[in-house]
Amino acid sequence: MYELIQVTDRSYYIQSPSKIGLVRLNDSDVCLIDSGNDKDAGRKIRQILNGRGWHLAAIYNTHSNADHIGGNRYLQGQTGCKIYAPGIECAFTSHPVLEPAFLYGAFPPRELRHKFLMAQESNAAYLTKEVLPEGFEILPLPGHFFGMVGYRTPDGVVYLADCLSSRQTLDKYQISFIYDVGAYLDTLERVKALRAVMFIPAHAEPAEDIAPLAQYNIGKVWEIADKIVSLCEEPLCFENLLQKVFSAYGLAMDFEQYVLVGSTVRSYLAWLKDNGRIEAVFEKNMLLWKKA
């Protein structure tokens, strides 16, 4: 773990729970794409940089999930590097309590205020084309989170963040976190058409051809959508529906899974309702979901 792997002359990634991109800007300066899940990840990254004699110029975050920005504060404090994050993700990066608060729908209980869902604050600026290194390209990848982006480097490596999961992860956990189902499917269709020297997803193995994995993720989204519709043959309140989803996929509920899977199921319900497959009705002061 935390092994530096070279992909091209200038582009690398650090093998970690969420792969971290590293790109050499010149003989001495490098930038990171994300920073790992916590302070310890930041320390390990710094050891890699020091071992190579590299100076960290900037961190370009793909999105604000804690496992992608957790090393920001440590690395910024140690190196003085700039940190950039896209759009609304910048606010979440600067104020990380927004993530568990969004997932829970209110001030989060203690069980959700930990490093897995809430990174330390870091001083982030808005990502723009002007702050990118020469030759870099921003790739909008909405769907998984609010305004997630990927990056294409000058030597043709594409860092895809969390826009898809590995087959093994999907087969084991079934439901990956999605904020906007429609945008997620659109993103995966665009990713299928991309060409690159190498694709580096955060939670899957690097690949020269990412289309088969993108299609597998698309298939899983439709499978889950059909399952939710089938569970709503009879009107169900959200809590009963969520219980049935957990049971159908053999999942075990705790606070983290309740908010992560629960938020995702709500996103599916919104998308299915907007597309006419599910109806929302109010009966006896209770919101019920039923197949249209």
Rank of each mutant, 00 (worst) to 15 (best):
I5G: 02
V7A: 10
R10T: 04
S11E: 07
S11I: 11
Y12I: 11
I14N: 13
S16E: 13
L25M: 10
D29V: 08
R46F: 14
Q47R: 15
L49P: 06
N50W: 00
H55Q: 15
I59Y: 01
Y60A: 05
Y60L: 14
N61P: 00
N65T: 11
Q76L: 05
Q78L: 10
T79D: 04
Y84H: 12
P86S: 03
P86F: 03
H95M: 12
V97G: 00
F102L: 14
F107C: 10
A119F: 04
Q120F: 06
Q120P: 05
A125N: 09
K129H: 04
E130L: 11
P133Q: 13
F136V: 05
L141K: 08
F145P: 03
V157Q: 13
A161L: 13
S165N: 12
T169D: 02
L170V: 14
Q174S: 08
S176K: 09
F177R: 13
G182Y: 08
A183Y: 02
L185K: 14
D186N: 13
K192I: 01
R195K: 14
I200D: 02
P201V: 02
A202K: 08
H203I: 13
E205A: 14
A211K: 14
L213C: 03
Y216I: 12
V221D: 09
V221H: 03
I228V: 14
E233Y: 04
L242Y: 11
F246Q: 08
L251I: 12
M253S: 09
S263I: 01
T264F: 02
V265Y: 00
Y268H: 13
K273E: 12
K273H: 07
K273G: 02
E279I: 06
V281F: 00
K291H: 04
